[in-house]
C-alpha cells in the first residue's frame, strides 16, 4: 500500500523555484490499476519517481507497505526498489551490450542471486512475455515492442508488488503498444499494483482509477470503476 501525505517537491533552478508537486496526497491500495494523466510539466513523472523511491519529497510523508520511507537510507531504498518496485520507461532503457536474458537478469545480479536460480526464473518469464526465441538477442536486434517486453520482464523478475510505467507505449506503434498494455494488465490481474503515466486518453481510460494532474496537484482522482 502506498500512502502520500501533503507531498511537496520543489526544484530550484537558479533563483527560481519550480513547484513540481504541490501539497499532493494520494493513497493507493495493493493490486490497484491506476492511470495518471495530465498536460506536459504537470508533475506526473516527478510523482512516479517519488513513488519509486528514486526521488525525495521536499516535504510531506510517504509510507510504503506501512513503512515510512522518507527517513530510509540510500541503500535501504535501493533494496526496496530492487525487491518491491518495477520500473518501465518510455525509452526501454535496456543495456545495449547485454542480451535479452542478461538484461532481464540484471536485478537478480544486483541482488546476488546465483545463476542457476536466475536461469529458471528467466526462462519462465521469457515464455510469459513471448520472447523465448529472442533470449540471446541484443536490444538492437529487437523491435520496439519486443524491447519493451524485455523491459517488462526485467521489471517483474523480482516479483515486485508495484509496477511503475512512465508512458510505456509512448514509443510504440498501436499494435505493439496494445501487446504491452495487455501484458501489464495481465500482471495486474495477478495482483501487482500497476501505475501507468500516459498521454493516451484511451489507454488512461482502461485503468480502474484515473488520476488527472495539473500544476503538481491532483484535480481529479477518478473513482473505482467496476472491472
Amino acid at each position: 500500500m502506498i500512502q502520500l501525505q501533503q507531498i511537496h517537491r520543489i526544484f530550484k533552478v537558479g533563483d527560481q523555484q519550480v513547484h513540481a508537486l504541490n501539497d499532493l496526497s494520494l493513497t493507493i491500495n495493493g493490486g490497484e490499476y491506476l492511470s495518471i494523466m495530465g498536460p506536459s510539466g504537470s508533475g506526473k513523472s516527478t510523482l512516479l519517481n517519488l513513488i519509486g523511491l528514486l526521488d525525495q519529497p521536499t516535504s510531506g510523508e510517504y509510507t510504503f507497505n506501512n513503512q515510512k520511507v522518507t527517513t530510509l537510507s540510500d541503500d535501504q531504498k535501493a533494496v526496496l526498489r530492487r525487491d518491491q518496485i518495477g520500473f518501465i520507461f518510455q525509452f526501454f532503457h535496456l543495456v545495449p551490450r547485454l542480451t535479452a536474458i542478461e538484461n532481464i537478469e540484471l536485478p537478480m545480479v544486483l541482488a546476488g542471486i546465483p545463476s542457476t536460480e536466475r536461469r529458471t526464473r528467466v526462462s519462465r518469464i521469457l515464455d510469459a512475455v513471448g520472447l523465448a526465441e529472442r533470449a540471446h538477442h541484443k536490444p538492437e536486434q529487437l523491435s520496439g515492442g519486443q524491447q519493451q517486453r524485455v523491459a517488462i520482464a526485467r521489471a517483474t523478475i523480482m516479483q515486485p508488488s508495484v509496477l511503475l510505467a512512465d508512458e510505456p507505449t509512448g514509443n510504440l506503434d498501436s499494435a505493439s503498444g496494445n501487446d504491452v498494455v495487455e501484458i501489464l494488465e495481465a500482471l495486474n490481474q495477478q495482483g501487482i499494483t500497476l501505475i501507468i503515466v500516459t498521454h493516451d486518453a484511451a489507454l488512461g481510460a482502461r485503468a480502474m482509477r484515473e488520476i488527472k494532474m495539473i500544476d503538481g496537484r491532483i484535480i481529479d482522482d477518478g473513482h473505482q470503476k467496476p472491472r
Partner: peptide
C-alpha cells in the same frame, strides 16, 4: 549516465 540511472532504478546501491 542513463545506464547508471537504470542500475539505480533496478535497485543497485551506490557502492555497486
Amino acid at each position: 549516465t542513463s545506464e547508471i540511472g537504470l542500475l539505480r532504478a533496478l535497485g543497485g546501491k551506490r557502492q555497486q
